[in-house]
Design a protein around this nucleic acid. Structure first.
Lengths: 233, 233
DNA sequence: CGCCGTTTTGAAGACAGTCAAGATGCGTGG
DNA sequence: CCACGCATCTTGACTGTCTTCAAAACGGCG
């Protein structure tokens, strides 16, 4: 899974690609260059831990490219995935805005590059460009909605949760083809299990069931073809 | 359950009691009076629906007094409580900040008074006093943390979820006494069930179990005495 | 093509859900 | 202030779904 480097925009030749980040969308060329100077970047290999729950990050982390899962670990040692982040998403909002330590851990699902902006610098930036805080807040609202939806789904049976996950990933990572929507799953079976709060065995069984019903087709371990999206709803 | 009207502060004689609201904490007397003029207030009886999921509120609702539950209804008709709100908490943040329709319904648990500030007015206010947005955002971070915690808890068994709920309500609504902490529960058994995502029968059985173990004592349907808070953790 | 990690499959068991009946608490009116 | 009646809560027996543990199959990478 390689990321194409040429994307039309000239600024994307800049190694930090700040312009991709939605929270900076209102800023001009000059400001973006200034921000770029504040940034330190770091690369992570697939499977590497990026941040750990409970620690103090001291700034905001912005995904430059790659996919990252954020998760919490339960008292009995199970992992629960909260989100799958992609390019432009951020980590550490609560630390930045409310001074709280990180409320989740994060791990790279693919090769990943992240940009770090120290807290003090970012607060300055927000004072100068109030739209940045507004953009971040809007994203927080979206996350809140997602978390509320997950809680709502946890009150239902496994099939409904699987359906919701398939619809979500189909929207985010699916490509339409003649036979339906081909989804490149960002998560393994175990990842799916940790995302919807069940065991991997249950995921296997339920997906097989759905395949037998003709709703989906399992292609290897990382691709799912959704034959009919409407049946899922 | 009657709310005392005299609370020491002189401004509290003002019917709207804006000064109680944390998100306006940085404002002076004059601004508070100005805000008060923008406000319409409304009273709700216990059990009344305050807002409905999916509708457009057109502003922010701030609790003046009383207790309110916010909840979503699942596809199969079950209710899942997201939060119990009290004095100073707000409803409709996603509508205000991101233009989204309400993501949850709300119902009064006690007699309740709410203040409504129309969206346009509130956005103006935020432009003049940037701290307001900051305060709201900090509260959003706290809610996000809570929602993440609920998702994490949903991955564990019922006992752990009950423990977490008892600790939370003990902190918020408990009074220390010689025998332990006496908690005035804001929710019925069914409410507790909808809060932690199980059936009311299961709540009954688990609470009884805890009583037999000597951890808690059930006093009627709305009071719980926590003998030893440490055993819960 | 072969090997190792991941996934699937099977059987048995546990936990919470369901349905139904009985008890209790609590607000109401006398 | 007490007694009544309804709503809420408790209790019991049974069922179903998901988990657990173990072994076999698969697929993806070198």
């Amino acid at each position: 899974m390689r990321v194409s480097t040429a994307k039309g925009s000239t600024r994307c030749k800049h190694p930090l690609c700040i312009s991709k980040v939605p929270i900076f969308s209102e800023l001009g060329e000059e400001e973006l260059t200034r921000i770029a100077s504040l940034i330190r970047q770091k690369d992570f290999a697939k499977g590497e831990q990026i941040v750990v729950e409970g620690t103090d990050l001291g700034g905001l982390l912005i995904l430059n490219h790659g996919q990252v899962k954020t998760f919490r670990v339960t008292a009995d040692g199970r992992e629960r995935i909260l989100q799958v982040l992609s390019e432009g998403d951020f980590i550490g909002e609560k630390n930045l805005l409310a001074g709280h330590p990180l409320t989740y851990s994060a791990e790279a699902l693919t090769e990943t590059r992240v940009c770090f902006i120290p807290r003090a610098e970012f607060l300055n930036l927000m004072r100068q460009y109030p739209d940045i805080l507004f953009n971040i807040t809007a994203e927080l609202c979206r996350r809140l909605d997602r978390m509320e939806t997950m809680i709502q789904l946890d009150t239902t049976d496994v099939s409904q949760r699987l359906n919701a996950m398939l619809i979500e990933f189909a929207t985010k990572y699916g490509e339409s083809s003649e036979d339906g929507i081909l989804v490149n799953m960002p998560l393994s079976r175990e990842g799916i299990a940790n995302y919807i709060g069940v065991t991997r065995e249950t995921v296997s069984r339920k997906l097989k069931e759905m395949e037998e019903e003709g709703i989906i087709e399992l292609i290897g371990n990382r691709k799912i073809l959704i034959r009919d999206l409407n049946t899922l709803r």
